[in-house]
């Protein structure tokens, strides 16, 4: 007699936990009932992200790099499951390798993007990159895993906390990723993964006054509306592409801080 498999309930990943949408809504995607996040879920996710930000940004770069590498380790262990939820093994490998690549950037960013500035006076002056804060990511529909990872990894490696709207059509890989993140020493709230209707959720994220930057790369036909809403608190707007990896992708979620001090005896 064959055994009946135990099926998974697909939920949100919010503040390090796996709640259903507070609205109780679901929608059907990839043959499963997926949580359909609400306005309140977006707001809760932003709160969770803001709460986790000081700790994540305050970790040493070496430590953050190790946590990103740990994500790759955990993904590797589940790669066959991931492969079933996206376009296949190739995409999974790409997503894993991307985390590894960005993990190595954590403790090199300041050397590449920062500077020591030779001002014309007796002052010590330097510029360092710092995370901008809470970053909203509208992930592309395709590829559902590598696209999301390509946008989230550069945001978090620099010390930001994120609220991510997963692929609407293929959200399951994102939920699986949440389970990886929960066991990868990523502090709860640093990555919050919401599934649901992008058209409903993206404007809430774009207009939220406690979100510092938004990646609208996955915005489908909503670009102008989202960018207009982003202006309400002068958000940094990034039109991220799902297929690139570069330190400039990290830089677009960073601020530059310049510090002056007099030199004298």
């Amino acid at each position: 007699m064959s055994r009946l498999p135990v099926k998974k309930t697909y939920k949100l990943y919010l503040g390090g936990e796996f709640p259903r949408s507070e609205s109780g809504r679901t929608y059907e995607a990839q043959g499963a009932n997926v949580a359909r996040a609400s306005r309140k879920d977006v707001r809760d996710a932003v709160r969770a992200a803001r709460g986790s930000f000081p700790r994540w940004a305050g970790m040493t770069a070496y430590n953050r790099g190790q946590v990103l590498y740990r994500i790759a380790e955990m993904m590797e262990a589940r790669s066959s499951e991931f492969a079933e939820l996206c376009s296949g093994a190739k995409e999974v490998n790409q997503a894993i390798d991307r985390f590894v690549w960005y993990a190595g950037w954590a403790d090199k960013l300041a050397q590449i993007l920062g500077s020591s500035n030779p001002v014309a006076g007796p002052y010590f002056n330097f510029t360092v990159p710092e995370p901008t804060g809470v970053v909203g990511v509208v992930a592309p529909d395709e590829p559902p895993l590598a696209g999301l990872v390509s946008r989230v990894a550069p945001a978090i490696v620099g010390g930001n906390a994120t609220v991510v709207l997963a692929s609407e059509t293929s959200p399951l890989a994102a939920v699986e990723l949440g389970e990886v993140l929960a066991t990868s020493d990523v502090p709860g709230g640093v990555v919050n993964l919401l599934t649901g209707h992008r058209e409903e959720l993206a404007p809430i994220l774009a207009g939220h006054m406690d979100v510092n930057a938004i990646d609208v790369g996955g915005a489908d036909g909503q670009l102008e509306e989202l960018e207009r809403l982003a202006a309400d608190n002068v958000k940094r707007v990034v039109r991220g592409r799902p297929d690139v990896e570069s330190p400039w992708e990290i830089a677009s979620f960073l601020e530059l801080k310049t510090v002056w001090h007099p030199i004298g005896l």
Binding site: N117, V119, Y123, N125, T132, G133, N212, W260, P262
Partner: peptide
Amino acid sequence: RAGVIWANTYNRFDPASPFGGYKESGFGR
């Protein structure tokens, strides 16, 4: 949380020194 920090000095500017804000003070340097 600010783009320029002056320690034991204030309102110093130099072409070699990046200037610009966080949050609603703008973006770009």
